[in-house]
């Protein structure tokens, strides 16, 4: 459930609950997953991190969008790198979900 307050000119510097327009949480999840994938985070670890309140930035997206959507996006992102060119490298195996 969203809580949206309007920006008030007589209270211009308190932005609690005020949405800054724009942005796409779905895209944010996808890009964050891509970044973590690219620095070598294993697929199962990333799933865990999104669901863990300890990682507040990831968790807030997980809470907003729901576990299913986040997991599907992560699966998709890891599937993207499955097109392996060199088969004999164990690091490639790591990229697979």
């Amino acid at each position: 459930m969203g809580l949206v307050k309007n920006f008030e000119h007589e209270d211009p510097f308190v932005l609690r609950g005020v949405e800054v327009p724009g942005g796409d949480p779905n895209l944010q999840v996808r890009i964050m997953a891509e970044e973590f994938r690219d620095i070598g985070t294993p697929h199962r670890d990333l799933l865990r991190m999104f669901a863990d309140p300890f990682y507040a930035g990831l968790y807030v997206l997980h809470a907003q969008l729901g576990a299913e959507l986040v997991e599907n996006t992560i699966d998709e992102v890891y599937r993207d790198v499955q097109q392996v060119v060199r088969e004999d490298d164990e690091t490639i195996q790591r990229s697979k979900p």
Partner: peptide, 18 residues
């Protein structure tokens, strides 16, 4: 000893970055 459950507060959807 790590916190495990979030507080259920209404949140607004918005982008953010550090």
């Amino acid at each position: 000893g790590f916190v495990s459950e979030p507080v259920r507060l209404p949140e607004h959807k918005s982008f953010f970055f550090y």
